[in-house]
Design a protein around this nucleic acid. Structure first.
Length: 782
DNA sequence: GCGATCACGTA
DNA sequence: GTACGTGATCGCC
C-alpha cells in the first residue's frame, strides 16, 4: 500500500516531501505529523489549497531512505524509487502548480538533480521539468533532529507562498560588471562619489589565504548592480603599480565619502588597512551584526541571509561562476540584505542594540591588529618545564603498566582502563535520559576512578601527562608574528560556527564576544579568551609598562540576585558596593552562602566550607543537578543532593525565578536582558531550553555591560591608553607605569554603568589588578 | 584530505 | 549548569 497524492487539482503550490513518518504511513494519513502542521500553519499557507505528495511513498525500511539507492550517492535509485520519481514528475506536469516546495534532499535531487541542500535551500530555482519553479527546504526528519530548522522552513514556505502567485520565474535584471577596466572602475567610483542621491555603498573584498593580499574588490550601490575589480591574475598584478595606485586612490576617496555596508567588516577593514592603509571610518551597517541583532539564533552567512531576505538566484563558488561575477553579486546582495535588515531592525525595535554592536567594531578591530606581546624566554622556560613534566609522567606510566600507549587517544585510554585493567566503565553525562550512554575516559572519569581505587598513582599520572601535553600543544607551542605577538579575531556577534552539514549548527550567541584565530594575522592559537593561568605568564608588558585588569566583581551573581529578587543578597551587594577589598571581609559571598545555609556565623566558615558555598551557588543559579555538583566538589552524589536541598531551602526565590523564566518563555520565546538585548529561543520545550534561558539574562547582561564600558573607554581614551584584552567580564589595558593612577580612575569612571532590573537601579563593583605579566596580577587598591 | 568525535581550556 | 574555540585521533573517501 502506498500513500497517494492529496489535494486539489488546481493547486498553485505543490509540496513534495522525501518520505512519510511511520505514523503517517501506518494510518494512511499523509502530511499530518506535528512538525509539518507547525510549518504550514505558521507560514500562512492554507493546506487545503496545496497538492501534497511524497517521493518515497512508504515508510522506508529501517527508517533509512538511502536504502532505495544502490550506492550512498543519489545517482543510482532502485527501480521502485525510479518509478515513484517519475510518478511525481507526471503529476507535476499534469497539475502544473506555480511552485513546488521540495522538502528534503531526496525531493531536491529527484526534481532538480542537485545534491547540496544547504546551497539551494530557500532559493527559487528551476528544476528538471522545464519552466517549473522549485524551492527546497529541510525535511521533516532534519527538523525533528534540529528544532532550529523549523523556523527556517517556515520562512521558506512563506517565500514559496509569495512566489506562488504566478508560474513566471522571476527575472534577474541585475547588471554585473565582472571585469571592468581600471578607467571604468575609477569612473564608477567617481560617479558614486559625486551623485548626491547615493549615500551608501556595499563593499566586499576577496583575498588570497594565507596572507592578506587583496585580489578583488566588489562594489554595489543597488541590489541590481554589482561591479568587481580584479587586481590579480594568476598570482600576478594585472596593472603596473602606478595604475593600480590610481584604483586604490579612487577606492580610498569612495570610502571616505560614502557610508559603507559590509559583511563582517572587521575582516575587510583590517585587510584594507594592513595592505593599503585605507581606513574605513564611515560604516553604515555590518550585515553580520544586523543579522545577529535581528536573528541571533540563525546562521549569518551571505548565502543564508540572501535566502531569507531576497528573492534572487543562488550563487555559490561551486557553481563555477567566475570569481568576478561571484564577488560582484556578493556586493550587490550585501546591499540588498542591508535594506531588508534595516527595516527589520526598526520592526523589531532593536536599533539600540544594533547601534551598540556597531560601536564595538573599532575596538574589536584595533585589538585584532595590535595583538598581544609574548616574552620568548618565558615561553621557552614554560615549554621546557611542561615537557619535562609530561615526560616524567609518561615514564612513570610506562613502568606502571609496562607498555606505551597514546594518552591523547580516548580510544586507547578507554581500552587500557576498561578492558586491560577491568575498571568500572565511566559514562558521559547525558542531556536526556533517553540518550544512549557513552563511555568516557575524560578527566572527570579519571578522578572518579581515583576515588574508587585509592593509592593507585595511575590516574594522577595520566592526568598530569595529559594536562602538560594540552598546555604545550594548545597554548605554548604557537606560531608568533615577527614582532612576537599573537593575534585573535574578536567576534562581536559571538559564535562563528558555520553549518557543519545539512543540519545547521545552532547559532546561540548571548551577546558576549567570542574570539578565534585571526585570518588576517594568523599567529597564536587564536582564542585569547581561554588561556590557562600558567600560560598567561608569557604575556608580559614591556619594561616601564604595566597591565591593568579591571573586572566586574561577582557580576553574574549580582545579576542573578536581582533577577531572582533575593533581598538578602541584594542588600549584601548594596552594602559592600564601593568598599575596598580589605573592608569586604564580612561580605564574602561564598562564606555567607554557607553560613546562611547552616545558620552559622560567617567567621566560623572554613576554607572547605567556603568552597562548597561557592560551588553550590554558582551551580544552582543555572539549575545544575547533584551529579555535576558532586563532580565539582569531588564528593558523593548523596552529599551533593543534601547540599542542594539545603541551599534551595535557604534560597526559595531561585526556584520562583526559574519558574518565571519558564512562564516568560510560554508567553513568547523572546527574552530581553537588562540592556534590551533580545534573544529568541528556538529549542524544543524542555529542560535544555530552560537551562539555556536561565543563563541568558545574567550572562548576556554582564557581557553587554563589559562591552559598553570597554567601548566607552576606547572612544574616550583609546588613543592615549591601549586596551589589550577582553575576557567577558574584565578588560585589560597596557600603560606606562607612571600613568597608573590616572588610568585606573578613568577605567573606573567608564565602568560605572547603572543597571535596572525589576525597577531597581544598581551598579556592579569593579576590582583592579596590576602586573608586569598577565599571569602574575596583584590586587590594586586606589 | 576532510569531518566527526572526544577532550579540555576560559568566563 | 551555560557560553565559546582549538587540537588530536580516527574512520571514511
Amino acid at each position: 500500500m502506498f500513500l497517494k497524492t492529496v489535494g486539489p487539482a488546481n493547486a498553485k503550490i505543490m509540496i513534495v516531501a522525501d518520505y512519510p513518518t511511520q505514523e503517517e504511513f501506518l494510518t494512511s494519513s499523509p502530511f499530518t505529523n506535528f512538525t509539518f502542521n507547525q510549518i504550514i500553519s505558521q507560514s500562512g499557507i492554507n493546506r487545503f489549497t496545496c497538492l501534497m505528495t511524497y517521493i518515497i511513498k512508504v515508510y522506508p525500511l529501517k527508517n533509512n531512505p538511502m536504502s532505495y539507492y544502490s550506492s550512498g550517492k543519489f545517482a543510482y535509485p532502485f527501480p521502485e524509487l525510479k518509478a515513484w520519481i517519475e510518478d511525481v514528475k507526471r503529476e507535476i506536469l499534469l497539475y502544473k502548480p506555480n511552485i513546488v516546495i521540495a522538502m528534503g534532499k531526496i525531493a531536491l535531487h529527484s526534481l532538480c538533480g542537485k545534491t547540496n541542500l544547504d546551497e539551494f535551500r530557500g532559493y527559487v530555482i528551476s528544476g528538471l521539468i522545464p519552466g517549473l519553479k522549485i524551492i527546497s527546504t529541510y525535511s521533516i526528519h532534519n527538523i525533528n533532529i534540529s528544532w532550529d530548522l523549523l523556523h527556517i522552513a517556515i520562512m521558506d514556505f512563506r517565500k514559496a507562498l509569495f512566489n506562488s502567485a504566478s508560474p513566471e520565474s522571476f527575472k534577474d535584471e541585475r547588471i554585473i560588471e565582472d571585469n571592468p577596466t581600471a578607467e571604468r572602475f575609477i569612473s564608477y567610483c567617481n560617479e558614486i562619489i559625486f551623485n548626491p542621491e547615493i549615500n551608501k555603498v556595499a563593499l566586499d573584498i576577496e583575498n588570497i589565504q594565507p596572507g592578506t593580499h587583496i585580489t578583488r574588490i566588489g562594489l554595489s550601490h543597488h541590489i541590481n548592480f554589482g561591479i568587481s575589480f580584479n587586481f590579480c591574475e594568476g598570482g600576478r598584478p594585472v596593472l603596473p603599480p602606478k595604475d593600480e595606485l590610481r584604483v586604490w586612490e579612487a577606492i580610498n576617496r569612495l570610502v571616505n565619502h560614502k557610508l559603507l555596508i559590509m559583511q563582517n567588516s572587521p575582516h575587510d577593514m583590517g585587510t584594507l588597512w594592513l595592505n593599503n592603509r585605507i581606513l574605513c571610518k564611515k560604516i553604515y551597517m555590518d550585515t553580520l551584526i544586523a543579522a545577529h541583532v535581528c536573528f541571533p539564533e540563525f546562521p549569518r552567512s551571505l548565502l543564508f541571509l540572501s535566502s531569507i531576505c531576497l528573492n534572487v538566484a543562488p550563487w555559490k563558488k561551486s557553481e563555477k561562476l567566475n570569481e568576478g561575477i561571484y564577488n560582484a553579486i556578493d556586493a550587490a546582495n550585501t546591499y540588498g540584505i542591508a535594506d531588508v535588515l534595516d527595516k527589520e531592525i526598526d520592526k523589531q525595535k532593536v536599533r539600540k542594540t544594533f547601534d551598540f554592536e556597531m560601536s564595538q567594531i573599532p575596538v574589536a578591530l584595533m585589538l585584532q591588529l595590535q595583538g598581544l606581546y609574548v616574552d620568548l624566554e618565558i615561553r621557552d622556560i614554560l615549554k621546557d618545564c611542561a615537557f619535562r613534566t609530561s615526560q616524567e609522567a609518561k615514564e612513570g606510566l610506562e613502568k606502571l603498566i609496562g607498555k606505551e600507549i597514546n594518552y591523547n587517544s580516548p580510544k586507547q585510554l578507554q581500552k587500557l582502563l576498561y578492558e586491560d585493567l577491568g575498571l568500572p566503565i565511566q559514562y558521559k553525562r547525558r542531556k536526556q535520559v533517553s540518550e544512549p550512554r557513552t563511555p568516557t575516559a575524560d578527566a572527570k572519569a579519571l578522578e572518579r576512578l581515583e576515588r574508587m581505587v585509592p593509592d593507585n598513582p595511575l590516574f594522577q599520572l595520566v592526568l598530569i601527562h595529559k594536562k602538560a601535553e594540552k598546555l604545550i600543544s594548545s597554548f605554548l607551542d604557537i606560531e608568533l608574528s615577527k614582532h612576537n605577538t599573537v593575534h585573535t579575531s574578536y567576534n562581536i556577534t559571538g559564535a562563528t560556527a558555520p553549518a557543519p552539514n545539512e543540519v545547521l549548527a545552532g547559532n546561540k550567541s548571548f551577546g558576549r564576544w567570542s574570539s578565534n584565530k585571526s585570518i588576517i594575522l594568523p599567529y597564536g592559537s587564536g582564542n585569547l579568551q581561554n588561556i590557562p593561568p600558567i600560560a598567561r605568564l608569557m604575556y608580559t608588558a614591556k619594561p616601564g609598562y604595566v597591565f591593568v585588569q579591571a573586572d566586574y566583581v561577582q557580576a553574574e551573581a549580582v545579576m542573578v540576585a536581582h533577577y531572582s529578587q533575593d533581598r538578602k543578597l541584594i542588600d549584601m551587594f548594596n552594602k559592600s558596593y564601593g568598599l575596598k577589598k580589605s573592608e569586604r571581609g564580612e561580605y564574602d559571598l561564598h562564606k555567607l552562602t554557607y553560613a546562611w545555609m547552616y545558620q552559622m556565623n560567617w567567621q566560623d566558615v572554613t576554607k572547605e566550607q567556603r568552597r562548597i558555598g561557592k560551588t553550590i551557588r554558582h551551580a544552582t543559579s543555572y539549575n545544575a543537578g547533584a551529579g555535576v555538583i558532586a563532580d565539582q566538589l569531588k564528593c558523593s552524589v548523596q552529599d551533593a543532593k543534601y547540599y542542594l536541598s539545603t541551599y534551595l531551602a535557604m534560597c526559595p526565590q531561585l526556584a520562583v525565578w526559574h519558574r518565571s523564566i519558564q512562564n516568560e518563555l510560554r508567553v513568547s520565546k523572546v527574552l530581553t536582558n537588562a540592556f534590551g538585548r533580545k534573544h529568541c529561543f528556538l529549542d524544543r520545550w524542555g529542560d535544555s531550553l530552560f537551562r539555556s534561558a536561565y543563563a541568558y539574562k545574567p550572562q548576556s547582561s554582564v557581557g553587554d555591560l563589559l562591552n559598553m564600558a570597554m567601548t566607552k573607554f576606547y572612544q574616550q581614551y583609546g588613543e592615549e591608553f591601549s586596551i589589550c584584552l577582553q575576557l567577558h567580564d574584565a578588560f585589560y589595558v597596557k600603560i606606562p607605569t607612571d600613568k597608573l593612577k590616572v588610568v585606573v580612575n578613568k577605567m573606573k569612571e567608564c565602568m560605572k554603568i547603572p543597571i535596572i532590573v525589576n525597577h531597581e537601579t544598581f551598579y556592579i563593583d569593579v576590582d583592579f589588578k596590576i602586573g608586569d605579566s598577565w599571569g602574575d596580577m596583584k590586587e590594586y587598591e586606589i
